[in-house]
Design a protein around this nucleic acid. Structure first.
Lengths: 337, 337
DNA sequence: AGTTAGCACTCACATCAATCAAGTGCTAAA
DNA sequence: TTTAGCACTTGATTGATGTGAGTGCTAACT
């Protein structure tokens, strides 16, 4: 079902007006605002057509139209013009991404910046396919060690380990060697398995130390491997008209606090660079009023993480996409160095 | 203005009923529910008295009464019975506080657990009076270092530093010595000053490395020195009847997202162990409907941090206090080891 | 003197009808 | 193919009205 010029024009206008106002848009208002050279009756006929085609829907029989998921999809794929990012935003991004720290830090930082620029919540995750390259054991103080795990792709994680007994400098070095021998090339998710197998084989003192290390790694490193949510922009979001309805507000807050759902949903978004999934395209009912725009962060062609913007379906698609693309460029530059 | 037995009994009943129901409580309902041996008229007279004394207030002239800040205060100081924590909660706490990591980790963990048990948001901060005991520089990989700052009270912080040029093993060791000599006994807030002064004195290569370190410390260590907010319980909170009003809900979300206000407010709470400030006792208007219950975390008589529960004024004071006291005991035990 | 029954009064809240405004679909004419 | 015109639908607003929970006050009771 192809859309002729006028119908496209109308669809575009409806989507953009609804993005602006969050109010159903009617034929008359549309003619006036967008100075279309047709009467409201013509627009009405076309709107009917668009509704029958599934691009628009009507909250109730005597109201204006709002875009459906299919409508937004058509808009994004065919009608939207990509706007350039404003200088203000570009400057803000340039000044905010410092590139200190490792990958994971960089992605987290970028995610925060995106959230700030778009005033929408964002989430980010780091690829879990990483494997260990190197392990360091550092003596912090009496009976306290730090274990540092360095991954192939450059992420650094550490945890503090409290020991039950003192160990000698010599033994520390041995620990270092043992851990390196055993953990090198181990993927993150298997670290504890490997360590546990090690414990079974080892003798007395080692055993206790490795046990302490295992628990701490489990607790401090692996648990933090989670999705990160940037929710600073929620107050701004809640001022949008759709959230006058307390139920909608609750849904949003709930949505953003279920990290597991957010995580699996983000991981399912298919995209090369920037990908968009809208409302019912996401197979989680809670997302039916939301869109996820996601960026794949790559380093040397390997995916190292994802950043996702979570927003009501009527988000500013254009600005969101430009922002993510700019961030992408920025990160690529940083990772090259 | 002393309160006789009956008036105390009434005040207690009003407070506890309002804590349960969030509805203004009237004289008749009170007599029925609490089987008071007086007529509703008598209760009414006393309620009038309590209102004149500032303990109760009336949302409007023909409604029941709700406790005022002064009423809650009187309740907390004189009427409330401290309940014992349930076994379920005790078990949950015992199993959840692992004590891995340093002070800061322990406090953050405890704060999270309190939030979970009480289903209220909590905040925590770590005393900033800490001074540096020891610095370690660890080689992570090519041109990447990790700097570890160990404080007198046992906190460990680290950051990753990317260098502009390679440095030798030998030079790393020198760096280690230099940093230790210069930073020992420096309070956190002066680290960057000290490092900057060092940069001015030092020569070429050092200069560049120390400069990189300074930036990274600034960015990764000091910025994270912030207040931590546990907001996982917000969805549960928003289901409370007072938040049917979207404005109230927005206020809550706003309140919890202004870290600076939360931080300074928490720091102002005066308390030995558990302290309570209610509504208008807090000199921040945004808190007028909220109470902060705060726990001072001490190690060897030194305050090392604070945990604060943020809740609507009609919180379950008794349970909140018992929970914090139990956590206090728990932490004291852990810090002894 | 303290307590209580009785009563007039207040006010939020729910209900119901009337009206209004924005929008629609359809038909017939241009 | 487009449009003017019109009957119709529906959510939102307004106003009247009744209800119920609660109050303060007074006079009678113990």
């Amino acid at each position: 079902m192809a859309l002729d010029d006028r119908k496209q024009q109308i669809l575009k206008a409806v989507v953009e007006d609804y993005i602006m106002s969050a109010e159903p848009v009617g034929s008359k208002a549309l003619v006036e605002k967008y100075k279309l050279n047709y009467s409201s009756a013509t627009i009405r006929n076309d709107m009917k057509f668009l509704e029958d085609g599934g691009y628009l829907s009507q909250p109730h029989i005597s109201s204006g139209r709002i875009p459906s998921t299919k409508g937004y999809r058509y808009y994004v794929d065919n009608l939207m013009k990509e706007k350039k990012l404003s200088m203000v935003d570009i400057n803000y991004i340039d000044n905010s991404i410092s590139g200190f720290g490792d990958y994971e830090g960089l992605i987290a930082e970028a995610s925060k910046v995106v959230s700030k620029v778009l005033q929408m919540p964002t989430i980010c995750s780091v690829s879990s396919e990483d494997i260990i390259e190197n392990v360091k054991v550092v003596n912090i103080s009496d009976r306290i060690l730090m274990v540092i795990l360095i991954s192939k792709s450059g992420n650094v994680k550490d945890c503090i380990v409290k020991l039950n007994e003192n160990i000698s400098e010599d033994m520390m070095n041995q620990m270092n060697t043992v851990l390196n021998q055993n953990l090198k090339d181990t993927p993150y998710e298997s670290i504890c398995d490997v360590l546990n197998r090690l414990i079974e084989r080892e003798i007395s003192v080692y055993k206790s130390v490795i046990d302490d290390i295992t628990k701490s790694v489990q607790q401090e490193v692996l648990k933090k491997q989670q999705l990160k949510v940037n929710s600073e922009s929620i107050p701004a979001l809640l001022n949008l008209p759709e959230f006058e309805d307390i139920e909608k507000a609750r849904n949003l807050i709930n949505l953003l606090s279920t990290k597991d759902v957010l995580g699996t949903t983000l991981s399912k978004v298919q995209n090369n660079d920037v990908g968009i999934v809208i409302g019912s395209e996401i197979d989680e009912v809670v997302f039916k009023d939301y869109t996820i725009v996601s960026l794949n962060v790559k380093a040397n062609e390997n995916e190292v993480g994802k950043i996702g913007v979570i927003a009501p379906k009527r988000l500013d698609y254009s600005k969101t996409i430009s922002t993510l693309k700019y961030i992408d460029k920025k990160i690529k530059n940083m990772l090259k160095k």
